[in-house]
Structures are given as C-alpha cells and as structure tokens.
Amino acid sequence: MLFASACKSRDGRHLLLLVDEEGNEVLQHPLPGRAHHVACHPQQPLLAAVARRPERFIDLVDFRDKHLLQRIDAGEGRHFYGHAIFSGDGRYLISSENRLSDGSGRITLRDSQQGYAIVADHPSYGIGPHEIALLAGGSQLAIANGGILTHPDKGRDKLNLDSMQPSLAIIDLHSGELLEQQFMPPSLHQLSIRHLDVNARNEVIIALQYQGDAWDDVPLVALHRPGQPLQLLRAPAGVNRQMKQYCGSARFDRSGRYAAVSSPRGDLITFWDSRDGRYISQSRVRDGCALSATGRAGEFLVTSGRGKAYHYDLLRGDKQLQPLQLQQPVSWDNHMTLV
C-alpha cells in the first residue's frame, strides 16, 4: 500500500481512498461528510477517517475486508476537529473534540476492546484543539490548541480572534495531567497552533496559521524542544510572504531531522532542519497540503487539491510525479497517511 487520504471527487462526493504503490485505487469508501485526517492502526488493517469540524463522525474502515467496521458519533454536545490517532499498542482511539457547553477543548480516549466506548475524557488545556501526536514512548500526548472558538450554530465562523490564546500542551495520555504548556508570545497571540508532528527526540514541528491583518509578515513555523519555549521560525523574506500566512500540515522525515511544512494558499512546501531551526528550501506544489514521510530519509510524499501526488527528495531537490489510476479525478484533503 502507498497512502490513505480523504478526498472530494469530481462529482462532489466525500470519499476515503486507499492507493497502492502503483497508484491504483484499492479502496473507495464513501464518507457521510468532509473528513480531514486519516489514522492507520499500528497492527491491524484498519483506517479511521475523522470528520472535520463541526461534523461528528469517525469512520473505522477495515481495508482488507473493505467494509465499514463502525461509525463513531462524537455524541450529543460534541464534535470532532478532524484529528484522531491510535495509541501505540492500537487499543485506544484518541481524538481532539469540542465540548459545546463551555467551548472547551477535550481529548477523548475510546477503547477498541469495549466497542470504542469512551474510557477517558481529558481537558486539552485550551480552546480548539486540533492535531495531536504521541511522544516517543507512547504515554504522553502533544496537543495543538489552536485557540479559536467556534460553535456549530455559527458554522465555521471564528468567534474570539481578539482574545485567542494558542498553545502547545503536553499531557499524560492516561491521567490527563498537564506536563508542559507553551503559549505564543502575547504579540503573536493570533498565530494559531494547528498542526504538528513529533520526532524521536520529542521535538515538535508546528505549522501555524495567522488570523491577523493580511499585510503582517509573521513567522509561520515553530519548533519546540522539551522544556523550552516555542522557537518561531521564519523563512527568507520573499518565501515567508509567499506562504500567505497559512500552513496546512507539518511532518518530520524518517530520520527525524528534516521537516516539511505545506502552505496550500501559497502553493509551496518549505523544508526545515530541526537541528538548528534552519530554513533549507522550498518546492512549488499547487494547492499542496497533505504530507507524509516515506521510508527514506529526506523524502516526503505530497498530495494536492488538484489531485496530484509527488515524491519529493529533499536531499536531491528532486520532485517526481506519482502516477495515479483513480476511478475519477479527486481533490486530496489536508492530510494523508502512509499505510
């Protein structure tokens, strides 16, 4: 297998697709709405396609038998934010959620051995938790608290841009205890922390989205090392502008040293060295957003809203189109996972 991703087909349907290494479509599962991230179970042939806000479903799909195993509903007064992951042992499905009664961010654990019943419901220690990732060892969780308050009654409107307080929180997965929290500096409180990835040294690469004025030129990537404040990273002037104040996904490569950050509004992917936070280079990908590390150091898979997939070898600066044979053209959604 190559990758799994949510997408929208030319005829307007929301689908979960699984594509093999030759680019053939091997699974097409119709989704009840637009999904965002897809998680792959660490041991079983199982994919979890997560509804983006303000929807309430997670479709658990067995990709070997090609059937919907279970459709999880977020429950009354809750919705998902588009991200969920499996615990390292595969037992728990962990998701970021909105509790509408007080607008607080929640991290919920569902137990696969109990039909995905909720067994823990932790605070995310912020508003609008988005992407989550396990730290090395698997007992701690990094949470991107975007800081933006939304409510399904107001569609996708952002309700607190003047007072938002994005943060990165590290919690104990099982007790929910807050172990570390880093906030954006007050002058950059409109810089939403949305997407992240963790490497083996527990460094976190963060893709940011700016909610301030269109002409501001702010850093759009951040790096976090355990116990230290966020290190804000800025691309060279022209490139930073070109990122259009919006990053959609961040992934470390297999070695954990290099990181890719996508800027779909600016049609480019930027590459960073986590050793010193240095900007390395960029590659142009029209409406490119979803990223995954491949099995090779310095190599990433990138998919785009134009339905393309590319292998990008950072060390050689080489971009190769991955031919795809799909039933019809699609727009690949924000995130993609290797299977």
Partner: peptide, 10 residues
C-alpha cells in the same frame, strides 16, 4: 478547481 485546501482549509 479554484482551490480545495487553499480556499477552505482547516
């Protein structure tokens, strides 16, 4: 396609 992720991202 005017844009998918770029126009209505998350």
């Amino acid at each position: 396609q005017l844009g998918f992720n770029s126009r209505d991202g998350d």
